[in-house]
Simulated scan of single mutants.
Amino acid sequence: MINLEQMDLILEALPDPAFILSHSGKYVAVFGGRDTRYYHDGTGLVGQYISDLVKPEKANWFLEQIARALESRKLLVEEYELSNKDVKGLADDGPKDPIWFEGRIQALSFLVDDEEVVLWVASNISERHILEDRLRELSDTDQLTGLFNRRKLEHDLTLHYASSARYSVPTSIFMFDLDNFKKINDTKGHHAGDEIIQAVANICRSAIRKTDTAYRFGGDEFVVALPSTGREQAMQFAKRLHDRFRKELSRFSVEGTVVTVSIGVTIITPEDRSYEDTLKRADRALYEVKSMGKDRIFSA
């Protein structure tokens, strides 16, 4: 049998910190956290309250999780971050980047000073979180251009559609492709084609606002989403972008034929049943441009 002294040694040796927290957010006890690569010494927290240490918004989140665990009596598992902006009076040598934790919160079956308490085990998952973010980024990014891909477009447009339907926030969409691209690609080869595609991506990156997002839809077809942008403003921006394309893509030519861009512009409307309706209308606008002779803009 393990005696109390041995149990204390075991608890102190835990690599992840384990906190006993009261319903009101008081640190009743701290065990473990001996992996100094990831954790500071937490013994000084005992007797203090979360609200003493953490700014109100984050402190309220911690208290909500404690209340949930006490009410459900089930194990809760939550991921959260802590950074300089969350912690009151953090020393200058504190972490510059957010630290991500996985919290495992379980109600305990005894009271401390007439308060219910929980066990909160905090595991530093920052390395895992960085890896997951990187994998997510790779799955959402077109390898050739570095722009977002069709998968990411569909995800984002779902959110834009919901925002438009619920809050009437306008979102405009450009769909454009490259005129004469196939001729140059077939004549000069795929390396030349890739160079053109990359040039288009670079123009998009430098021309759009921070709130806008550019996507490679497939082949030589691209989409730009402009949230909080009405049709008139979108058309003005489309003209500026079109001028950039004319100027900077003129160096790509074969036998006197140069690469130009045709742009279809539309906006999410109340009549759209989903973002797919918006994309179809942008595609129709692009088709109209082609039928009118290419190298121009059409709004639908």
Rank of each mutant, 00 (worst) to 15 (best):
N180D: 07
F237S: 02
Q65K: 15
W61D: 15
P227G: 08
R151T: 12
F245G: 04
D93E: 14
F298R: 07
P56I: 06
G146Y: 05
R216L: 02
E271P: 00
A207W: 08
S83D: 07
F31T: 06
F217K: 04
N185P: 07
E195R: 10
E57R: 15
K88E: 09
R246G: 01
H155D: 15
K290C: 02
R37V: 00
L147P: 12
I268E: 00
A238D: 02
K182Y: 03
H23I: 10
E276M: 13
D8Q: 12
I208S: 05
D220C: 09
P15R: 06
K247Y: 13
S168W: 09
V265H: 01
N180F: 12
L53P: 08
R150A: 08
K188R: 12
N3W: 07
F174D: 01
A282L: 04
K188V: 06
D295W: 06
E79S: 08
H155E: 15
E276F: 10
L21E: 00
E81S: 14
H242R: 01
K294Q: 08
E57Y: 08
R151A: 08
G103S: 12
D277V: 02
P227E: 04
Q198G: 10
G103N: 09
K183S: 11
L111I: 07
S139A: 15
T43G: 13
H129Y: 15
K58E: 06
T266H: 00
F110K: 10
M175P: 01
A234W: 02
E248D: 14
R246Q: 10
L21T: 02
R136D: 05
G189M: 01
E71R: 13
R104E: 06
E71W: 01
L63M: 10
I267L: 09
D41Q: 07
